[in-house]
Design a protein around this nucleic acid. Structure first.
Lengths: 215, 215, 215, 215
DNA sequence: TATGAATGAGCCTTCATTCAT
DNA sequence: CATGAATGAAGGCTCATTCAT
């Protein structure tokens, strides 16, 4: 997986992302994929161990790209608020790109074989939480700490609300504008905070193993 | 379906909700269901026409209960704000109950046969939007109208954020307290509104047929 | 079976003849039959050992009625030619009545269980052959004997040709007229006979066990 | 279907013709077929879309061969009577080959899916009628026209009478001799014609759509 | 590398038959 | 006599995966 990928492998991934997104994982047969790629069924298994491992490869690939984008954004020398805006924009951009596939992913949860996938998704969510934490503290100072958990839940909620719009409609939203809009909403939310709903250590306390912070 | 259900039928629904939630619809075989119920494969078809119709029955059942609860809440003689609070609480309570199943539902979108299901979900979402609209105008007056679409998207996002928590963790949240908390957050959001992101007629404009307001 | 039949049993036979004729034996379920009769599935098995035994009962019943009609006709004191005419007419009348069912019967041939049915059909055909033999000799004298086998084959062919018409179309043919018409054709055939095609002992020689004279 | 067929496909057709003929279509499972062929269940679907489409393929195949044989015969430069003889011989030869299967075919009338099959059979019968019409007029002149419908019914009856013999027994009949024999019988029939039984336009009048001339 | 025929487990569904009531 | 819920074998079909070429 870490290897540079062959053209064929990339082709398979591209086409299958498309098909999975459109029809779902279970309803897309290996045959469908190979036909879309113009290759033989055998060729598929030359590149992937199984249909399931393809799914994991795709997600891994997505996660890698995403992580890289985000971390390079976070290293830029701009104000914390600009960083959060950038961060939000990246979320929307990536959602826009992988959207349907991501939606589909949410389905194939806990099957024994897909446990690897589950772990990957958990890892991704943890990253997201950590990044948001850091950004929020950078922006709003240490006073926000009592509200961190709530804020993260809410921000992810807001993002998901608009992400779904991006997925469901083909609306070509202006991601930059949307990011700025949400930044402003976040400001409002923070301004009105009084008593937190969730405890500060909520993420650590709940389901130490199967962490609750899964999105 | 409206009939009083036989014990067996209820058993099948209960177990299948559980299994669908855990493994997904496609990955749960009728065999799995009947085994979990301790009945024969044939017995399943005594109660449901098909695996698919079971899915629809479940959703219909959920929708009926939910609709009833909501509409009786909306008819209570309390302040608009109290109504919204009640409304939110009901969402969380119901989510808590059907949780995983609902999550799973979001997946089986495109299958031809599940078109009925899709329509049901669309209907439910439209109801949700309408109810929220009315409540918001009641509370914040006509000035909110320009922001209705954004507010609905955001409120649904916030609710979903916390709903997922309810689903993922087994945390016994205080739904009342959560509703009050969110009410306060909604106040903050409204207080900070300036320029809307989405147009007022967004729901009507996008995919008139296959309305975008699907959640 | 020899017993006088209960009303219920007759009801079942009537309805099932109809259904078998319309949809075929395999495609008609016991459920279909009991629903058409307005009785429970259990009641069916009170009257018939199995679906298969029902089939045999029906055929037996048909055969009994038919045999009786024919034999009473053959005992009438009329000219041999009139007897043949009567004989032909009965064939068409019965065909008209049981038509679709008879057609259907031709299908469920040799299945292990239906061996009884096969024997019944063989028996019926043998009777038919014997009757035709006697009548032909009565009419055309001993000279016809060399041609008996051919004549039987041909007469049955002619009858079947017109029987199919009766079955396929709903044409209300005048069975009497048709019988007279065929009588005339048979005359023509006999008039032109020269060298037989089949040997006199054809029916006895071929397949002693599984006699070839099956229709 | 027009393609040259793979050996495997031919094997499946051969074995299934045999099994269908012996047990009927409904009572022959795909499993039965594949077992008889020594292949796996899945392999069947590599060659045929469905069990039903196999049936149609077989019939189509038979019809093609048959049509070709007949039409090449009809183009030969011989006397009309010789043509009819040839025509009859071909019927018997082909019957001899596909025999039981054809018999079985007559059964699966009403199934929705088998509508294609029904149309094919109707087409074949219409061809048969047309060919016989032409041949009869060529041989017996225009005087026969009033009797065409009856003659066709009767000739098909005679043919069926002997065809069944071919099917039921394994008798190795001399098809040539049989054809000549029947030619002579047809002569006798024509010689004795007086008043027709069926009207000239019978085929056109009855069930214009679902023509009655189905055999 | 690449192919695609072949496999066989598994899926949804139907249905003849049984049996407790 | 009558019921109908329950059974489970069997049917048509799909599909991930393998393997000889």
């Amino acid at each position: 997986m870490g290897d540079t990928m062959s053209e064929k492998k990339i082709l398979i991934i591209d086409k299958s992302v498309e098909l999975f997104a459109k029809n779902g994982f279970e309803s897309t047969s290996v045959q469908d994929i190979t036909k879309a790629c113009g290759i033989s069924k055998g060729a598929f298994y030359l590149h992937f161990e199984s249909k399931n491992s393809l799914l994991i490869s795709i997600f891994q690939l997505f996660l890698d790209k995403f992580t890289e984008k985000v971390s390079s954004a976070l290293q830029m020398e701009v104000s914390p608020k600009d960083k959060l805006e950038l961060f939000l924009r990246i979320q929307f951009e990536e959602t826009d790109h992988y959207s349907n596939f991501i939606l589909m992913l949410l389905r194939e949860q806990t099957k024994p074989d897909n446990n690897d996938l589950f772990l990957l998704m958990k890892k991704m969510d943890t990253q997201l939480n950590d990044n948001l934490s850091t950004l929020l503290v950078d922006i709003y100072g240490e006073d926000i700490e009592n509200h961190l958990v709530d804020m993260i839940i809410m921000i992810k909620g807001l993002m998901k609300g608009y992400s779904e719009l991006i997925v469901m409609c083909d609306s070509n939203f202006d991601h930059s504008k949307l990011a700025r809009y949400l930044l402003s909403r976040i400001d409002s939310l923070v301004a009105g905070l009084t008593t937190p709903f969730l405890e500060t250590n909520f993420f650590n306390k709940n389901n130490p193993e199967l962490d609750c912070s899964k999105s």
